[in-house]
Design a protein around this nucleic acid. Structure first.
Lengths: 207, 207, 207, 207
DNA sequence: CATGAATGAGCGTTCATTCAT
DNA sequence: TATGAATGAACGCTCATTCAT
């Protein structure tokens, strides 16, 4: 029950908003302070550097993304189901935490080398979930995939794209979008289930 | 036989290199000048503003991308073939003109309003090529696509992603990558040809 | 008892000194900062833009000039006396606030359009004091003036000129100069009092 | 009959126009070149530095002003007539050569020390004409002037002011203005002729 | 005679950050 | 805990001027 208006939180939110909208480099520390309603000095009192703010956002995002994926996978074994869930979780996250996703995608290059390295380690762990799932599906004969790495890169990029165009006020709900992407993913993977009528298990759930 | 050392060209190339590597905002005009081997003042002898340099890159890129797609389509009629060619052309372009593609994708937000508008007009024309092809394929029964716009967004994003990871020195040649993406695209579209043995018409052609 | 070293004051004084000596355009912001003993960045901590600094000086000056004139006029009714006081106040001000007067006179053209407009409004109000006094003197038969506007322009210009050559260390005191100009003014106006022996009421008052 | 469009002339005219309108410091050499329709390099081919352009304008102006005064004085002896003619010539010049007059008045401070010195020498010669005339009028009993130097400064400043507000399209013709100023001058000087009906000898002549 | 190319220095302004209080 | 004051460095850009051709 932290007071909703507590300063550090407001700063983080302002930074997120601005980094997402204008990019990290184009955002001044003064902009963040103004947007958060504090002085720049106060801002430095609560947080570290501008870089720290960015790193915090990106790491938090990747951790949340990974945790969400792990949770979505649960103890499901079937590769087809696992891929289905990975896609849905990824898409859902990129819609719900749109700004974090945008920042994580676009502003990596603004991290200094050590930070970048630590972030990439997290991302690699996340991508491994996909790689393992894909490999399992291929070796079990569920998928017909020519080049696994290329497949993964293409699929993930496709799903990530949601963050760029999703609008909460748009025609499609996020679960609906997630499902459609799941179908596309299975089709790409050559899974016969892709175009089955019952492919649509509407368990997308989330808000 | 362009003289390798003519200054304006060197400036444009330096700007492209740096904008792609660090982003527009993170690149200083002095960085560009240094990289091009001229003084900052000389740089302004040839170009307008930093923004102009960016606009030039992006517009040039989008025009070339569009022209390439139109040429690739030629007078081909079959939607399946047309989509195949769009994908190959797009992927090829994003590999060959990697830096231009990255800048065009990432730095749009640094354009001022009028420039952005003019650029979006070009991009819309390009996207229309995809939209029309997809619509034709659906109405002719070649594709099994649920949501055309969402399909297009996902597919284009997937193909665009090549610019982020392609390396000329990598294992796969660009035509090989283009072909694999074409296969993925047709699979996504539910085209029966996707997994045919002879789907791989190696006429990817382009350089 | 203002602390002599407070920064914003020092900045304003330095700007005034330099704008008066070299002109607004010829004065660099670094010159002002150096002269005020602060960094250029600190300078921007206190002020807006270079233009703002100029506007502040000019507006302040015109306000003070007007207030001085109004005070000098008091509730005096006789046009001859009123003109006498206007001239003395004007001359005195242009000697005492020499630099402000020079800047106000010479640097108006460096103001942007809206600022200029606001300044001219103040100046018009000041000039109206003169115009009304002259008109009253003419209609009451105290003055013999052919063309009132031309008379006013000439007279004011003459009095303003003091700012260009007055030196505190010169032979004549400022009140003495003011009185001599008052005599010239009345002579110009055709007032019989101009060359009266007792015209020299040394009540110039001001410091 | 010099070709009206010859380059050096066009450059001088452009410089005059811009120096008068914006001031010397605010005028770029590129502005002058553009306005004259030549390249900056061509400009330097024909003329010296920006300073030289200014010096040329000011010296030319002062020479012309002096020559005009000398001519106006002719072999007239009476101090009253001489002052009358000085005023008329001065006013006329400041109306007819308005831009040169403005530049000569306002931009002196932009001259380097040697140039300024040479210019002041010319100006001193011109002012001597006034000083001698005034002194003669006083010693011959034609004028009632308390402080000669102060009188001269005030009177000249008044007459110079014409350059700031005169408009060829205005209500009064330049000779008419010159005459009215001559009347004011004589009134200031305490000459009985000032308010005579026949004071208006319309021989102001000038174009 | 004429000009495109080029520059070192400087412009007004903003940057992320620190620190005394 | 919180902030006004302050800064060195850099920003994008323009300056008056030169010079090879």
């Amino acid at each position: 029950m932290d007071k909703p208006g507590d300063t550090p939180q407001r700063v983080r939110e302002a930074a997120l908003r601005l980094f997402a909208a204008r990019g990290f480099e184009a955002t001044g520390i003064r902009d963040v302070a103004r947007d958060a309603g504090v002085s720049t000095a106060a801002l430095y009192h609560y947080m570290g550097s501008k870089q720290d703010l960015l790193l915090e956002i990106i790491r938090g995002g990747l951790h949340e993304l990974t945790a969400g994926a792990v949770e979505a996978l649960g103890d499901v074994d079937e590769p087809v189901d696992r891929l289905d869930r990975l896609v849905r979780a990824h898409v859902t996250y990129h819609g719900r935490k749109q700004m974090v996703a945008l920042v994580s995608d676009n502003e990596l290059r603004s991290l200094d080398a050590p930070s970048l390295k630590s972030v990439i380690k997290i991302r690699d762990r996340y991508e491994a979930l996909w790689a393992e799932t894909i490999a399992a599906g291929v070796s079990e004969g569920d998928f017909r995939i020519d080049d696994q790495k290329l497949f993964r890169l293409g699929l993930m990029q496709m799903c990530t794209g949601v963050a760029y165009w999703y609008q909460a006020a748009g025609e499609l709900s996020l679960p609906a979008i997630a499902e459609k992407f799941a179908v596309l993913a299975l089709a790409m993977a050559g899974s016969p289930r892709a175009f089955d009528a019952d492919a649509t298990t509407p368990g997308g759930a989330s808000a």
